[in-house]
Design a protein around this nucleic acid. Structure first.
Length: 856
DNA sequence: GCGAAGTATTCGCGG
DNA sequence: AATACTTCGC
């Protein structure tokens, strides 16, 4: 242990013992280690707190804020603290209130998105939006993109709502809008021009709908600040201390937002301030100085590059914000040394990082447990059994978590947990608010708040089924647009749309009247139009009740036979309960606040510490959380690291950080599990152990069943736990099967090899390499055997107006020669039906298929 | 316009 | 393997 203590930089004589400079009896500083104390008391324009996992950063942040307020350096209202989830925000607020009592009223503690919505709702009118704007989630964005792509016929070029959506999201995270992107694109590429058109229409439609997507929330706030310095000045003046948690996962837009908020206010803007600036707000040159910025982060835990997080934000912080000070927290108060050693070993393989080692003074603890099942089912069984054992040993279910890389891994786990009667809950995944029936009901509320939203309107028209279909919808939408009406107004005047049958016209008008009535109620006009009634907005629960009653949604579901519909009906009742609960928690907050809250819930927000259940979640969701016992499942090549990451620049390193995040969530017990076969796309394939397992010193892992011990379908070769394994040096060993040799260094139980040598021995390496080689060959064989035709190569083919007729001979890159037996479709979607000489009949998109005509 | 039946696609992580 | 989308008959 003493070895590790030498690594503690904060132990060096900087502050000299606990409690720096005259703060000896300060409850906000007492009990902190010297580095933490410095992080709390340091003042200046900018501070970077490099906080390793479990180093007490939340404590430091809350104490720093409390310290600022208590020392009268700031009013609570001058503090803006940004956290990663709403739950973390609520927790932080609570802890600060615990330290200060009521003195903390008025702070902004929220996520980036929540803070921006708050600002945008306040300032929307200044730039062409209305305060009641809708926030589109990714499903809404995709619905909108789907319409646009259809209209532009862009699907034949391979554009889908999903791929164009993620491309737009990436650009927005870089603060690039359609016009800017158009200026930088390659004009000669028709695909790029088409994309710009999609992007442009998407922006236009969002604006027409009075809606923002998730990325807009940040980007438009930055845009607002840049185009309206007077608005920016309001917030620059107000927030004197800005603190950002998880800074390593901020993207460019978020970074820019922070930059805007920490700009000094120039004298000409100072003059326009209302109320006028006081003398003591100004510096010598007549400016209001920049707010003080504190960021907390750990570049080793940056795991959101895929949504634009830029690790440079934290790496270059000191260069970026002049006068920045840095405090490093490396002492870990969470995990045992064995867990930390594993974490250090894994992350140490990332060459592009600053050296940093977590340490603890708490002792080694238990060894990490490893297990390899022969299938994911077998793996899940082990997890369930171990959870039972842990629970019997006194570990609370709520202190146990199971992590995985992809959401699809939950199925096998859930199955076994149900069978074992272990209470669990899945965080994220198919969320409550993403369920179809819940989205249906929410569409009514969204439309009530924003009658210009076409996505919500279109959704509510069809749910429940009432005979209003695509035709009627299109006619109404035309009428709405032509007359510049809201969708509600258009519905009230449905009688004028003669293209629709009279029965449906009446249905639509009735529905419109209901929506208008609900809108008036939600706005405070009262549902009954009684003159003189106070303009008090109705509780959200009442509006929801009105919608559910009038549409009969619940009863219609109950009337169906399908048992799943009963569950759907219950979900709607649950939704009503959620709305009522919201009314109690935030009386008078109104419909908009409810919609905002629902839009911005994150996966980790569902976590309820008192639920008494085991938590299942992805490793991304697990960031910032901790549990006594953690299972990391599916530690296999192709899954962790994920296959998709292998070809990405820095992809493996990011996966390694993800592994590091997962490991460091564990306090006492860590389990690493995998399966030797895994079902994907319906068929079963061989899975190899993750390279990250190799990176953990073998002495740290107690293999209950190592990868080499698992034979194929036949189950296991040996269930004996910790059976000392034969010969082989360093506790590695091998098993011979009839067809091939499979070996893996398994640190076979307690065979005592204490050699914690980092580099794998040549023997183990080659064994793993052989395994990989075998797998690679199998893959290639499958691919060349026709299993994966038409592999995407990135280039876009265009046969132009290749004329094909029945009877023509053609040659296909993959299928060889064949004869056209028919042509269907038209324009860009023309399809050739071809019977190939070797592979039989195929349908091909004439425009894009890799074919050429053969002259006979 | 709606449901059933057949067909294509997906399983990468999230606010 | 399971879901999402399309096509077809009423």
């Amino acid at each position: 242990m003493s070895d590790f203590e030498l690594l503690d930089p904060s132990g060096l004589p900087v502050g000299g013992g606990t409690g720096a400079n005259g703060t000896a009896d300060d409850p906000l500083v007492d009990g902190l280690n010297p580095a933490q104390a410095r992080a709390v008391t340091t003042r200046g324009p900018a501070l970077l707190i490099v906080a390793g996992a479990g180093s007490g950063k939340t404590r430091v942040l809350t104490h720093r804020i409390a310290h600022l307020i208590r020392e009268r350096e700031a009013w609570p209202s001058q503090i803006l603290a940004i956290t990663f989830t709403n739950k973390a925000a609520a927790e932080m607020r609570e802890r600060i209130e615990g330290l200060l009592g009521d003195a903390s009223q008025g702070m902004w503690v929220s996520t980036f998105h929540s803070a921006c919505v708050r600002i945008l709702r306040r300032e929307a009118e200044r730039f062409g939006y209305v305060s009641g704007f809708t926030i589109y989630d990714s499903a809404d964005s995709r619905a909108l993109l789907k319409r646009i792509i259809k209209e532009l016929d862009a699907d034949t070029y391979g554009f889908t709502p999903a791929n164009s959506g993620s491309k737009i999201s990436k650009l927005k995270n870089e603060l690039v809008d359609a016009a800017t992107h158009a200026a930088t694109m390659n004009e000669n590429d028709p695909r790029e021009r088409l994309f710009v058109e999609i992007f442009r229409m998407y922006e236009q439609e969002l604006k027409r709908a009075n809606a923002f997507d998730f990325d807009d929330l940040i980007g438009q706030t930055v845009h607002l600040f840049r185009s309206h310095p007077d608005v920016a000045a309001i917030y620059q003046r107000r927030f004197r201390h800005i603190l950002v948690d998880e800074y390593q996962d901020t993207n460019h837009a978020q970074y820019s937002l922070i930059r805007e908020l920490t700009r000094p206010i120039e004298p000409e803007e100072v003059e326009r301030l209302v109320p006028p600036a006081r003398e003591r707000e100004l510096d010598a040159s007549g400016r209001i100085p920049a707010a003080s910025l504190t960021v907390v982060g750990d570049s080793d835990q940056s795991i959101y590059a895929f949504r634009g997080a830029d690790i440079r934000n934290i790496v270059e912080f000191e260069r970026d914000f002049s006068g920045a000070e840095v405090v490093k927290l490396e002492q870990n108060y969470r995990s045992t040394q064995n867990i930390l050693s594993a974490a250090n070993a894994v992350i140490g393989n990332n060459f592009d990082r600053q050296e940093k080692r977590l340490w603890t003074s708490e002792g080694d603890g238990e060894r990490i447990v490893g297990f390899t099942g022969y299938s994911q089912h077998d793996e899940a069984r082990f997890v369930a059994e171990e959870i039972e054992d842990l629970h019997r040993a006194g570990v609370a279910y709520s202190d146990i978590a199971v992590f995985y890389r992809t959401n699809s891994q939950t199925r096998a786990l859930e199955e076994l947990l149900i069978r074992s009667a272990i209470p669990y809950r899945v965080l994220g995944g198919t969320k409550f608010y993403e369920r179809a029936e819940v989205k249906d009901a929410m569409a009514y509320l969204t439309s009530i708040a924003n009658p210009y939203d076409p996505i919500a309107w279109s959704r509510l028209l069809g749910a429940p089924k009432r005979g209003v279909g695509a035709m009627a919808e299109a006619h109404l939408a035309n009428f709405q647009e032509a007359n510049g009406l809201s969708f509600h107004e258009a519905m009230l005047r449905a009688e004028e749309v003669t293209a629709i049958g009279p029965k449906i016209r009446a249905t639509v008008r009735g529905l419109g009247e209901m929506l208008v009535r609900a809108s008036r109620m939600a706005a405070g006009g009262g549902a009954t139009d009684v003159a003189g009634e106070d303009a008090v907005p109705a509780p959200v629960g009442d509006v929801m009740k009105l919608v559910l009653d009038e549409t009969d949604m619940i009863e219609k579901l109950r009337a169906k036979r399908d048992p799943q519909d009963d569950a759907r009906a219950e979900n709607l009742e649950e939704l009503l309960a959620v709305a009522r609960e919201f009314d109690v928690k935030q009386p008078g907050a109104g419909l908009l606040a409810f919609l905002t809250e629902v839009s911005l819930v994150a996966a980790a927000d569902d976590l309820d510490d008192s639920s008494g259940t085991v938590s299942l979640m992805t490793m991304h969701t697990a960031k910032g959380l901790e549990f006594a016992a953690v299972f990391i499942t599916g530690v296999e090549e192709g899954l962790l690291p994920h296959q998709m990451s292998v070809d990405e620049i820095g992809g493996i390193n990011e996966e390694r950080r993800l592994m590091y995040v997962g490991i460091t969530r564990a306090r006492e017990r860590l389990y690493l599990t995998l399966a030797s076969t895994r079902a994907t796309f319906g068929d079963v394939s061989v899975a190899m152990p993750s390279r990250f397992l190799q990176e953990i010193p073998e002495g740290l892992i107690d293999w209950r069943q190592s990868p080499g011990e698992v034979t194929g379908r036949g189950g296991t070769a040996s269930r004996a736990l910790n059976a000392p394994r034969s010969p082989g040096s360093n506790g590695s060993w091998s098993r011979t099967r009839t067809d091939s040799t499979v070996s893996f260094s398994g640190g076979g139980g307690g065979s005592g090899s204490a050699a914690v040598s980092e580099p794998a021995s040549g023997n183990m390496q080659s064994a793993l390499d052989k395994w990989r080689e075998r797998k690679r060959l199998a893959k290639e064989a499958q691919a060349s055997g026709g299993g994966f035709p038409n592999l995407v190569d990135g280039s876009v083919r265009d046969n132009g107006d290749l004329e094909l007729a029945t009877g023509d001979r053609i040659r296909h890159d993959e299928y060889g020669d064949g004869r056209v037996t028919g042509i269907s479709g038209s324009g860009t979607k023309r399809i050739a039906h071809v019977v190939f000489d070797t592979v039989g009949e195929r349908k091909l998109l004439v425009k894009l298929a890799p074919i050429e005509k053969v002259v006979e």
